[in-house]
Design a protein around this nucleic acid. Structure first.
Lengths: 94, 94
DNA sequence: ACTATATTTGACATTGTTGTCTAAACACAC
DNA sequence: GTGTGTTTAGACAACAATGTCAAATATAGT
């Protein structure tokens, strides 16, 4: 899932709840313009936004965080040789 | 990654082989100034540099790549909640 | 010490990303 | 239609990261 899709996912949830961007943007401490761009995939979502997003959209934080993070890692490293081995090494180290 | 440690490791290997920065820098298609900063940890190492580095320093590519990549991931996400779970999910997906 | 080479440093231009601001586009009630 | 609130677009400044260049410093070799 690309970042644009994650943005669309957030937008869909926001609209289901009937919350205007104004409110969500305030919770994230950004402009509605920035939030709009996030929802449209024109701006990256900062990882620090996941917690407040989960709260205001009433989504499970842990689930959203894991999903966001895993997609971020995949999109960043998907074409990198030996990614699998590196991930296994990271898991061993942490 | 601004890993001074990895840079120092590369520098140590280069010096053991007696290869001047000039040669390695040329293989990486950068200035000696940039290479110096990389070795001192003042510039990030681009992942595309690992392959030419392994060749010129006669280090095992796979090993170097895995090591570099795992350290990069750790340094980037070490304080991120649910990293372990996200990594496991990534491994499942790829 | 002198010279040549190697390395490091700091200033700089370039590039990419971020969020804001203003205004335009949109939706929808009245 | 008009008016009100919402969303999006584009231009902009702030900021960080990159690599280069030229100058400064360090290291050998003789």
């Amino acid at each position: 899932m690309k970042s644009a899709e994650f943005g669309a996912y957030l937008k869909a949830h926001r609209e289901v709840k009937g919350i205007p961007q104004r409110i969500v943007a305030h919770a994230l401490d950004v402009d509605t313009s920035t939030l709009s761009k996030i929802e449209l995939g024109e701006r990256q979502i900062s990882i620090t936004m996941i917690k407040p997003l989960s709260e205001i959209l009433e989504l499970d934080y842990k689930e959203l965080q894991i999903r966001f993070l895993s997609e971020k890692i995949i999109s960043e490293f998907k074409d990198t040789p030996f990614l699998k081995e590196a991930l296994q090494l990271v898991l061993k180290k942490i």
